[in-house]
Design a protein around this nucleic acid. Structure first.
Lengths: 115, 115
DNA sequence: TTGCTAGAGTTCCAAAATGGAACTGAAATC
DNA sequence: GATTTCAGTTCCATTTTGGAACTCTAGCAA
């Protein structure tokens, strides 16, 4: 079954996953919640390629989760801001954060810094 | 950046995503919460290919989220059960469910069946 | 004893997605 | 004029997916 067919699935979890159930989208949203809004920030903070960032931002805007807003007229510069719909995804990210903190502690070598 | 490199990421959301941040894993976990435990059930309920089901179950078992348990001796038959670590992922699925129910209602044509 | 069914996978190949790097375009700054 | 910044796009090789067929063990039926 193709991934996009899940859009009409009876299960709301499946439908949600058609938007955020890929390898980078949730990391972009995490960045948004941490204050990022620029293309370059997403690229730098997530580690995803510019190609991926571009396609994911498009999808998130189309879905009404982010809003693409002009913030410099010349040259045209856009930023991406969470909509109300996007902000309501916050609790989901928090459950991921909490689960990760509890169950996937970072294995660090003796000399590794905390950051 | 390669996806697997996120395993050691400072961010617990990113680390969580290395396990469940792909196109089908969360759907398999949803099935587990709804009572499924067999390979064939996952294949039928998620719509993912057997190939994918196989690789995802391996990863979930390796991560300690599911337990692979023999339930028929001859021929060998295995089922997959949520561990405590896996059960603690429940709240995350519920946030996805709630967000999807609220923001992604199913557009159904007049004749569309419920299944 | 040949044939069908069931469960749990594996294998193969084509199609789609991803990773990495370079390139574009507009304007500000050196 | 050259370099830098931001926001993308393009190209190509590598990975991952999607789909279907195949394997292996064993029960059951004719």
């Amino acid at each position: 079954m193709k991934w996009t067919e899940l859009e009409e699935n009876w299960c709301p979890v499946a439908r949600t996953l058609t938007l955020v159930g890929d390898r980078w989208t949730l990391l972009i949203l995490r960045d948004c919640f941490l204050g990022s809004s620029k293309f370059e920030e997403f690229a730098a903070n997530t580690g995803a390629t510019r190609h991926i960032i571009s396609s994911r931002l498009k999808r998130l805007v189309e879905a009404g989760i982010l809003e693409r807003k002009l913030y410099v007229e010349r040259p045209k510069r856009y930023e991406y801001l969470l909509t109300e719909k996007g902000r309501e995804f916050g609790p989901a990210l928090m459950t991921f954060r909490d689960w990760g903190k509890k169950h996937l502690p970072v294995r660090r070598s003796a000399s590794a810094a905390k950051g």
